[in-house]
Simulated scan of single mutants.
Amino acid sequence: MMKLQDKVAIITGGAGGIGSGMALAMAKEGAKVVIIDVNEEQGHAMEQELQGISADSLFIKADLTDHANLKTVVETVVEKYGKLDVLVNNAHASRQTMFADVPTEELELSMNTGFYPTWYLMQAAYPYLKETKGNVINFASGAGLNGHETQAAYAAAKEAIRGISRVAANEWGRDGINVNIISPIADSPGVRAWAEAQPEYYEAVVSKIPMGRFGHVEEDIGRVAVFLASEDSKYITGQTIMVDGGSIQLR
């Protein structure tokens, strides 16, 4: 029996990077994976790959900054599959600027692609997750936990996501819903862009990772997402899981 047999999972930003790694890992464990992404070409390519593993998987094109339609996204998934078991809020866009120079539009970009979609999708998914005693997996970042330079807008949104995740974990625990957070370091397109923009900082970060490398999006990050989406994690909620090779050791 696969760990996620017949579970229905929504993954935002699932067409590439960490999202695609989680999508592949969950599909291989039997989940029907719905990836939500604005990139139509990558989305359809990922859909085909997923359907080769889990035939009922699906790509839905959606702009997460169109907050009014996020409830419709969830309702579309439930109408097709009859339920929702897992919500993964992974998508997020931001720009790198020193804190004193961050313009309002960059803060709004980070909040509108990361924090607000997480907020509204959680609200929309709640009644369906209550029925399945399902799971929410949100995403934090060392940028917020350690306060990385040039990451003010991103860190603000990520720490806000951690805050509402803890609130939801406390409120929804009585409904059997688990809400947890992954804080990853992964070899994703975003990290590669950061490495190009700040190579010295990137090398400094790698040198401080106890395991000496960035994580693989499927084998490292995806497998932890499978665990948090499965029955194996039913007594874990409200936690920030550091999937970062030991870079940040919370106490």
Rank of each mutant, 00 (worst) to 15 (best):
A68D: 14
I11L: 09
R223P: 01
D232V: 13
K133M: 10
Y120N: 09
E219H: 15
V136P: 02
K71V: 08
A100S: 14
I236F: 14
N170Y: 11
S110Y: 05
V74F: 06
Q123N: 14
V205K: 03
T104S: 11
K61I: 11
V33F: 04
V8L: 03
W194T: 01
M46F: 03
R223E: 15
I185W: 11
K61C: 12
T72D: 14
Y202P: 00
S165R: 06
L250P: 02
L70Y: 10
D101Y: 13
R213M: 05
E75C: 05
W172M: 11
G212A: 14
L50K: 06
Y154H: 15
N89A: 08
A93I: 11
A156F: 06
S207L: 07
N112Y: 02
L145I: 15
P127I: 14
G19I: 11
M2V: 07
P189D: 01
Q198A: 14
H92C: 14
E41I: 13
Q151W: 08
V34C: 10
Q198N: 07
I177H: 03
A9K: 05
S247Y: 13
P189E: 00
M98K: 15
A31H: 05
N90R: 12
A23I: 12
L129W: 08
G43T: 09
N180V: 06
A93S: 14
E106A: 10
F214H: 13
K158N: 04
Q96G: 09
G222K: 06
K32N: 14
M26A: 12
A195P: 00
I161P: 00
T118W: 00
N39R: 08
P117E: 10
N90W: 08
G14D: 01
I18D: 01
P199D: 02
L107D: 03
A45M: 08
Y202E: 00
N178H: 14
R223H: 12
L145P: 00
I185F: 13
G16H: 14
G147S: 10
H92E: 07
N178M: 12
L50P: 01
Y116M: 13
A45L: 12
A157F: 01
I209G: 00
T97S: 06
I18C: 02
V8R: 02
Q249M: 15
G142S: 06
A45T: 09
V224E: 02
N170L: 13
L129G: 08
V206P: 00
A100I: 09
V88S: 10
K133P: 02
I182A: 11
Y81W: 07
R174P: 04
L145A: 11
N39F: 01
L24C: 11
V206S: 03
I10T: 06
G222T: 09
L250T: 07
G246A: 04
L107S: 07
V73P: 02
V38T: 07
A124E: 05
A9E: 01
D101P: 03
G14F: 01
P184C: 09
I248N: 01
A225T: 12
E106R: 09
T72I: 14
V38P: 00
G17L: 12
A45F: 04
E105H: 12
F99R: 10
F59C: 02
Y202T: 00
V88G: 05
E75K: 10
E47Y: 01
K80P: 01
F115M: 06
Q123K: 15
S247V: 04
K83D: 02
R162W: 04
I164Y: 05
Q151G: 02
G82Y: 06
P127M: 09
F59T: 07
D85H: 15
H148L: 15
A153D: 04
I209H: 00
V136T: 08
H148N: 15
